[in-house]
Structure formats: C-alpha cells, structure tokens
Design a protein around this nucleic acid. Structure first.
Length: 665
DNA sequence: TCAATCCGTATC
DNA sequence: ATACGGATTGAC
C-alpha cells in the first residue's frame, strides 16, 4: 500500500524510536519518517506514538538522523505525544546497561525509569539553560565539626568529593538520631558535591527516611535546588519533580529506588542509605536493585563518587570493600565507645526468676527490668517481629508459642480445617497442651503487634504505650515513660534518643529459611540500636537471641566483621553475593531451554553451577544458576539471546529470568 | 486457474 | 501480539 505523499522534515527526516513492546526479540530501535509538521516536536527524548506491526504503540525518539539503514520501507511517525525530552541520552544508556545486566529488555527498564506523563505539569516547562549557579550561600564543607570529620577517613573522603573526585565508600554510620545521624552525612556529602560544581543523587528506602533527609538538607541547601522523587507523593508531584530535574533546576535529587533513574546531569555523587534493605530491589521485571543502578551511574560519563551507607553492612557492600572497589569509612573504637549504647544478651536469663506479667509478654526478666528502669529516664523501644514471622498459634493463657509435639514445627489453623496443624509435618492436633502452663486453650496471633503491644503494656503498669507498625507507622516519639512497640523497620525516631531498646523475637527472625536471615536480623538490630543513647548516658540494648555470631556482632558493635564472616561463608558455599544467581521460572521445557543456553559456561575456570529444574508452584518449574562474576555479563547476554530466540520462534511458552533475587533463596 | 487457508517470519 | 508473503490445497 503506497504511503500518502507527505512532506518530510527537511533535515534529519528519520527518527530512531524505541517502542514499548514486551517482546524480547523486538528490543531494539526502529526507524520512522518524520513529517514536516512534526519536525519541531520530534526531538530526541520525546514520547511518541507509532504504528508497529499493526498496533499503535508508545515509544521514545532516541535519535534524529539523516537516513536509515533498515533496508525496508519506513512508516511515518504518527504523533508526538509530547515534545518534552523525557528520555535523556545518559538515562537511555543507563537503561541499556541495566537491561543487559539483568537479561531484561530496555523497554521494561524504561517503564521503571520514566514516570507517567501528567500533561498539566508540562504547561510552561522550559529547560533552565546555562545560568551560572550561586554557590555563595552553601556552608563551609567539610565542616570541622561536621558528621564526616568524626569518622576515620571521613573528612578525606569528603574532601576528595569536593575536589571533583569520584571515590567509592562503604560508610558505617554509628548514630541513628541527633546531630550526627546519617541524614547529616548525606546532606554534607551533597554540599561537598555542589562545591565541586556537580550534582548529587541520594536514594533511601522509604518515605520516612526521605522526610528525615529532606529536613537535614533544608539546613544546608537552598530549597529550590532539591528535588524529591517518590512514587508515594503521587503521579503529578512525581512528574513535576522529574521535570524540575530534567530542566536543570534541581541539583540534589533525593528519593526512593525509582529516583535512581533521575535525569540529573553532571553527576558527582550517588549515595544509597541502608543498601541491605530489600525495598531497594524493584519488584517488577527485570528486578534491578537500586544499589546496582547507582553503581552503574557512578561509572557512567566522567565518573561519580559513590556511597553505600548503613548502620550495618550488607554482604554486597563487604564484597566491594574486599575487592577494592570501595574503601571502608567507619568509626574508630573511641568514637564507638562514646556514642553507642551498652548491649546485653538476655537469652540466658529467660528461665531464671520469672515475673508473671513479663512471662505473659514473653519477656526475659533482665530485659523487663532494664526497660522498667529506663522508662524513668526516657522513651523505651521494643522491637518485635512482624506478624508474618511470628508463630501463628499461641497459648491463650500465657502466650507461649505452641509447637508440634512430634517435630517441634510451628502450628497453625488451616483455612479449611478447625483443628491446629503442623506446618512442617502436617500432623493434625485435636488437642494442644501448653508446655509452660498446661492450658489447652489457644489463640491465633493474627494481628501480632497490637496484641503484643497490649500485653507488653500490661507488663509495664503506668507506661504510655505507643505502637508503630506497617500502615500505622509513627515517625517520632519522645518523653520518659513512653513505651514504643514497633515492628521491624517501623521504629520511630526519638529526638533525645531511646533510654533503652529491647530486641525481641530475634530467634524467630534468625530461624527463617532464607539465605539472608542472619544478615537481615543483624541489620534490623543495628537500625534499632543506633536509635538508643550512648552507654555513658545510660543507654542500653537488650537482645534476646541464641545466634552467637549475630548477637556478638551487636554486643561488640562490629557490623563489618559480621558481614565479612557471612561473606566468607557464602564464598565457601558459592552462594550470592559471592556469585550472582539467575532464577529461571516457567513451564518445564521453557526453563530447560533457557538453562541450555548457559551450557558454554558450564566448563572452564569460572563454571556456572546449575540447580534444577525442580517443581516450583502453579505447575511451574525453577532452575537456579549460580554464576561467577567473571562470566556474569556473558551469562546475562546468553540468557537474553535465548529468551529473544524463544519468543521469536514461539517454540516455548515464556520463561522468566530473574537475576539476584535473593529473597528467593 | 483462482481463492481460501496454512505456516513462517518480520515487525521501522 | 499482528500482518504480510509465499506455499499448499481444494473446487471450478
């Protein structure tokens, strides 16, 4: 069918377009002709609509060019949705690198990178142009009394950033509240970056951390230079902020994981807080992790400084220290002694001296006593496991968790049956008897924390009980006599510091069948413990768990050694993050076909270890591929090619590839 | 000899 | 996915 004769753009009449197609074998740009009428709007980076294989698809112009090398007859560009160049060349390159690393499609990554359009926000958008910045209002940096100056190598690191360098650091921050807490570190690092004439990108796990970071920045950086990118702020705020970054108005971007794609130019620093938090892992294909995104960004272009920071240390961060990619910036012993609380292991005191109320609340006596004393001097934090981790069946009298009499497995009441059942061996228990008090009445611990808060409150008559958990998170608490019961990750900050913290349910967290159970537990402990006052001001942390290494790390306040031991163990077992892992899921033949693609890597020095396929769920099968870093990019390339071939030939139903999804292990 | 259908392949 | 082209089949 002949195209209707149409006048084309006089110069660069060809637009190269990436289309939003989910098909892996179409993951490449296609060329279109630009009609003269669209010449002005059809700029590189603009959103467009094009005809593609008989459908109307969205896409982005990545390039305008004089001619095409496609060899086929080109279609004409249908429509420029918006002339705002939302896809910058740097972000496109980032998306391509991310797609390659995770064996995904550029189209999938673009969906994560670019926020949905809100036309009203574009009304009078213009790029800022080359107006020189007025940096005269920025504070002295690094400040002699600043947060960085307190850490070994901290001032030198910041100086290096300020001088325009691109050093990499794993930073272990000892304090979680007060004037030297982590938000100050990030704010000061952003200022150093601005001083170097470059821009900074700071990523945090959630909205609460974002608020704290914004508050710290507000003291140091003019408000107009800061943009905040968070899905929680809603589509129009997110898009408006995105456009402020795109236009060059914002020079410091703060946000949650999707902010890692912010179209910030002249990047001088990328930083991520608490990189071990699993909310940094994107739950949509191709499942990239914010830490990896930022590391890629730090290596793009001129190179940017990179900070991986936390109160503890992820095994990934430890690996980067050990292989020399990052230097370790941490507090020396004297500073730790000065600012950290006393940590006491109370696991051994459980069966001594019982207070009936404390027993009902499942509190070791020593912990109960410490909390009771501390309440007179300040707020007290009780960290409990989330509902999902808690045993599902408790004694109605004394709240002792009930266990299977045959195998010690956890009991639950199945949706269909009336009698309790063991989760491990499946035994049905027509009657259950509490081993502590002999009661035969049981209760289902459905809304875990509320119950616990109530019980804990009863153990501390006179205390004001505040509970904080997912959905009802308190940001801040203060005052003596306040007892805060918080689930993992929902701990409010006490501006004056907690007088004490009780870390309960550690054994339950450690017992989870997950590669990261210990690492994750230790991370949660340090996050809570860093909110407690220094030992010299009476601050105390009571931890109840039997895992010697984990408890020891907290008692000695030594997250780095713990991470090193964990990593050493993973290395020995050839498990992540000592190697990368790709999970292949789908119908059996599709999975087998994909794993076949890795055959060339199954011999030689850096051998890929393949486990599976084994039945997974819903009739699907799963294969795990453990891939040494030396061959990881080749493995990703092979898997991506195999996926494309399978989807082109439709010989197999789709199988999913997921790299580094550690929650699966 | 032509149309209806099937299969394979490309999709600007 | 769809859409198109070339091959194949079946009916005049």
């Amino acid at each position: 069918m002949p195209e209707p004769p149409e006048k084309l753009a006089a110069t660069n009449p060809v637009a190269r377009v990436v289309v939003e197609s989910p098909l892996p074998h179409l993951d490449r740009p296609f060329d279109y002709l630009v009609p003269d009428a669209l010449d002005g709007d059809a700029v590189a980076g603009a959103r467009v609509r094009v005809r593609f294989a008989g459908r109307e698809l969205h896409g982005y112009i990545v390039e305008r060019r004089e001619d095409s090398d496609s060899g086929t007859r080109l279609s004409v560009l249908d429509k420029v949705v918006s002339p705002v160049p939302v896809l910058t060349p740097e972000v496109l390159e980032l998306c391509r690198l991310v797609a390659a690393r995770y064996a995904g499609t550029v189209s999938d990554v673009l969906r994560l990178a670019i926020p949905g359009r809100v036309a009203s926000c574009e009304k009078d958008w213009t790029p800022r142009g080359d107006v020189p910045d007025d940096d005269s209002s920025l504070p002295e940096n690094p400040a002699p009394e600043g947060a960085w100056t307190r850490l070994g190598k901290g001032a030198a690191f910041l100086q290096h950033v300020r001088a325009g360098g691109d050093p990499h650091a794993v930073v272990t921050v000892p304090e979680g509240y007060g004037p030297h807490a982590w938000p100050e570190f990030f704010a000061e690092a952003a200022v150093a970056t601005l001083h170097s004439g470059r821009n900074a990108l700071l990523v945090v796990p959630d909205r609460r951390d974002l608020d704290r970071l914004a508050a710290a920045l507000a003291h140091l950086v003019p408000r107009g230079l800061v943009a905040r990118l968070s899905a929680e702020d809603g589509p129009s705020v997110r898009y408006r902020e995105y456009l402020r970054v795109l236009g060059g108005y914002a020079r410091v971007v703060i946000g949650t994981r999707a902010a890692s794609y912010a179209p910030l130019r002249d990047l001088g620093l990328v930083a991520i807080w608490d990189d071990g938090d699993d909310v940094h892992a994107e739950p949509r294909a191709p499942y990239p992790h914010a830490r990896e995104l930022l590391m890629i960004r730090s290596s793009q272009g001129q190179g940017a400084a990179c900070i991986l920071a936390g109160h503890s240390r992820s095994t990934e961060a430890e690996r980067l220290v050990e292989n020399g990619w990052a230097q370790s910036v941490e507090a020396d012993r004297p500073l730790l002694r000065a600012v950290t609380p006393r940590v006491v292991n109370t696991a051994d005191s459980f069966h001594q001296e019982r207070d009936p109320l404390a027993t009902a609340a499942r509190l070791p006596h020593a912990a109960w006593q410490a909390a009771k004393d501390a309440l007179a001097h300040g707020p007290v934090l009780i960290q409990v496991a989330r509902g999902g981790y808690a045993p599902t069946l408790l004694c109605a009298e004394c709240s002792n968790p009930l266990r299977c009499s045959k195998c010690e497995g956890p009991l639950h009441v199945p949706a269909t049956g009336a009698a309790p059942e063991c989760r491990w061996c499946g035994t049905v228990h027509r009657t259950v008897t509490c081993r502590v008090c002999g009661s035969q009445r049981y209760t289902v611990a459905g809304n875990g924390v509320l119950r616990t808060a109530e019980q804990l409150g009863r153990a501390f008559p006179g205390a004001r009980v505040v509970s904080s958990s997912a959905g009802r998170v308190k940001d801040e608490v203060s005052g003596a006599g306040t007892l805060v019961v918080a689930t993992l990750g929902a701990e409010p900050v006490a501006p004056e510091g907690y007088a004490a913290a009780l870390l309960l349910d550690g054994d339950q967290m450690l017992r989870r069948e997950n590669l990261r159970a210990a690492e994750e537990t230790v991370r949660r402990w340090f996050n809570a413990a860093s909110l407690v006052r220094p030992a010299r001001d009476g601050g105390v942390v009571m931890v109840t768990a039997e895992h010697e290494l984990a408890v020891g790390a907290l008692v000695r306040w030594d997250p780095a050694s713990f991470a090193a031991r964990e990593l050493a163990e993973r290395r020995e077992l050839h498990l992540p993050p000592a190697v990368r892992v790709a999970a292949l899921t789908g119908p059996k033949d599709a999975v087998e076909n994909l794993q076949q693609a890795l055959a060339p890597l199954q011999e030689g020095e850096h051998e890929v270890r393949i486990v599976g396929p084994v039945p997974f769920d819903d009739g699907d099968y799963r294969t795990l591929c453990f891939i040494p870093f030396a061959v990881a990019s080749e493995a990703a390339r092979l898997l991506r090619a195999a996926k494309a071939a399978a989807s082109a030939k439709r010989t197999h139903a789709a199988a999913q590839v997921r790299f580094d999804g550690l929650d699966l292990l």
